[in-house]
């Protein structure tokens, strides 16, 4: 890991790192509140025994809860994958491995987001 020369790399510039940092703050805050709301509804107000297919179907009959769950999903995936991106940036130094890890991460995040969105949009009770 020895530095090849003492001249420092040219900065990449751009606002992405700043945006990512700000996004982590806001999404983190929202996730705490929304995840707590989720826990209160699913584990405190309603006992775990009553939560079944019918319960979810009833809940998702109201568009509000579909939007709520989608925001929870999107923020969770984006916040989590940005965190992993940062860890990869810190610790994976080999260019090839870093490209591989980040690509795998983006693909996984994309797949999770698309699958979750698809379920939320197309779910019809009783089918």
């Amino acid at each position: 890991m020895a530095r090849s020369s003492y001249s420092r790399q040219r900065p990449m510039g751009g606002g992405f790192e700043l945006f990512a940092w700000y996004f982590m703050r806001i999404s983190g805050l929202l996730l705490v509140l929304m995840a707590l709301g989720h826990i209160v509804i699913m584990h405190i107000i309603n006992s775990v025994e009553v939560i079944n297919y019918a319960f979810v179907a009833r809940r998702w009959a109201v568009p509000f809860w579909r939007v709520y769950d989608w925001i929870l999903l999107a923020l969770g995936v984006l916040h989590g994958s940005n965190g992993i991106r940062v860890v990869i940036d810190d610790y994976v130094h080999h260019r090839g491995w870093r490209a591989f890890c980040t690509s795998a991460l983006y693909v996984l995040a994309f797949v999770l987001l698309v699958m979750g969105t698809e379920v939320l949009l197309t779910f019809t009770p009783g089918v």
């Binding site: 900065p11 510039g13 790192e17 700043l18």
Partner: peptide, 12 residues
């Protein structure tokens, strides 16, 4: 700002 706002700046 350029160096501070880069990947190797404050965001690390």
């Amino acid at each position: 700002v350029d160096i501070l706002n880069s990947k190797f700046g404050v965001w690390r």
